[in-house]
Design a protein around this nucleic acid. Structure first.
Lengths: 119, 119
DNA sequence: CTGATACTTAGCGCAAGAGCTAACTATCGT
DNA sequence: ACGATAGTTAGCTCTTGCGCTAAGTATCAG
């Protein structure tokens, strides 16, 4: 086990999904997908004060999606690809539940289309 | 285009990831993966007041992850599998960026291990 | 040693998320 | 018609998220 805080699976998913729910953070991940970058380099495209941006970095790091390291006065960030495997795992898990259920769900939807919908 | 509100991709992802960031909501999706269910059936396993639970249902519905329909006094919920495809799409997109970058990232991590880490 | 650079910390403000109770509406069963 | 059942709405609380400014620390360049 490489997980340091020894959180449970569910809590990890909370943090990861929460991290991914913000467009700035997703953009940072995309950027880091192309290779490591410093805080200021990452912050540059965003019209946002540095301290605000830093919070996103902290969020990403505490959710384990990125890793950072400071050398001199510059902190470099790298993406941690393995962590997104948790998302994959969850998706697969869900799909496993749906397997062979397609018929039943489609039946419901088909029935629904025949009737009025009341809000 | 089947998207009704015509939101952009990013906004949709915000909502979807946000929806998935809560364990109650993920549990509801899992449950719905096995087939449609009423609000009370869904709420039953949770130690939570109905109105609180209802908010999760609304959240799931407004993010498009589920669909509901009321007949008589019971509202039935169904999962909308297609919507999770957006998550898949995003993941694939990201992975596409990382392709052939493994070497560079691994180099960074290897370098990092040789040095002190300062918080 | 001094100024510029690259974060960092502290603290504030507003909006949203997630839970609750109380009270209301709309069926359904008898 | 009545009570029970299934949601729904309103409104309050507390916490968290996300942005800001102001001020501080730690290199690095000269």
């Amino acid at each position: 086990m490489i997980v340091s805080h020894m959180e449970n699976y569910s809590t990890q998913l909370n943090d990861i999904f929460q991290a991914l729910a913000d467009p700035t953070r997703r953009a940072v991940l995309s950027r880091l997908g192309k290779g490591p970058a410093s805080i200021s380099d990452l912050a540059d495209p965003f019209d946002m004060a540095l301290p605000s941006f830093l919070k996103h970095i902290h969020f990403l790091e505490s959710s384990g999606l990125i890793q950072t390291r400071k050398q001199g006065r510059v902190r470099t960030c790298v993406i941690k690809k393995e962590r997104l495997a948790a998302v994959d795992a969850w998706l697969s898990e869900q799909r496993a539940l749906w397997e062979d259920r397609t018929d039943r769900l489609e039946q419901f939807v088909t029935d629904a289309d025949k009737k009025e919908r009341q809000e």
